[in-house]
Amino acid sequence: MKYIEKLAKIDRRIIYLILFLTVLLPYLFKISLPMKPLPEVVQAYREIDRLPAGSVVMISIDYDAASMPEVQPMLYAILRHCFSKDLKIIMLGHWPLGIPLGIAALEDVAKEYGKKYGEDYVFLGYRPGVAAVMINMGKEIRSVFREDYWGTPLDSLPMMRNVHTYDDIAILVGFEAGSTGDYWVQYAQARYNQKIILGGTAVVAPDWYPYLQSRQIVGLIGGLRGAADYENLVHHKALAYYGMTPQAAVHILIVIFIILGNIGYLALRRRK
C-alpha cells in the first residue's frame, strides 16, 4: 500500500531525470520510429529536387533563437539538398536577430559541400521594412540590397550578375516563426507569382494549409515533424529525425506520470 501512496509524491528531480534520459537515450542509440513523410513535405522536396543545376533558390530567415530547435534543422536539410543538387543560394532575412543563425548554417553547409561564396551562395542580410523589401525586390533586388552582408556590391559577385528580380529566382523558401510568411505569400506570390515553400514552427504552420490548397505555396514543412521528414528525404538524418522518438516518448511519459500521480492520490484519499 505504502508504495502506491508514494506514487502521489514522486520527487520532481526524479521526473526531471527520467525526462532527460528519455530525450537523450534515443539519440545515443539512434532509435527511430518508422515514419512516412507527410505529403506536403514530399511536395516541397520534389519541387526543389526537379530544379535544374544552377537554378537560384532564395532563402529567408524569419525566426530567431527561440524557434531555433524546430526551424534550424529544416534550414540545414534544405541547404544540404540545394548544394547537393548544385543549386545556388541567396539568403536574406526579416528578423534581425535571426540573421546570425542563418549565416552560421549557411557557412557550415557550404564548407561541407566545398561551395564558394559569391559563386554558389550569397548572403544579403537584413533591411528594415518587411513588405517594402519584398515589393521592391520584385522590381530590382539591387534597389533594396545594393551590397551584400559583407558590403560587397552585388554586381561584383559572379552569381548575382544575372539575378535581378523574382523572375530569376526558381523557388523562395521562407523559414518562419511569425507572420512574415503571410507577407511573402501576399507580396512575392500574389504580386509577382513567385513559387514559395514555407517552413515553420508547429505553432504557425497549421495556418498555412489554406495556402497549400490554393496552390499559393508549393510545399509546407511544419514543426520538428516536418524537419524530420525532410532530413529523411535528403538521407541526412540528424537532430529532427532522431528527435521524433523523444518527442513521442516524452508525451507518453508525461501521460504516464499523470496516471501514476492519480493512482497514488486515490490511494491516499481512500485511506483518509
Partner: peptide
Amino acid sequence: MYVFVPLQATMFSLLAFFIASAAYRAFRAD
C-alpha cells in the same frame, strides 16, 4: 552565438521539465 543564444535557449528549454512536473502534480482528478 555562443553566450547569448545558448543561455536563452537553455533557460527556455527548462520549460520541458517544468511542464512535466506541473502536469504530474496538478492534474489530479479530485
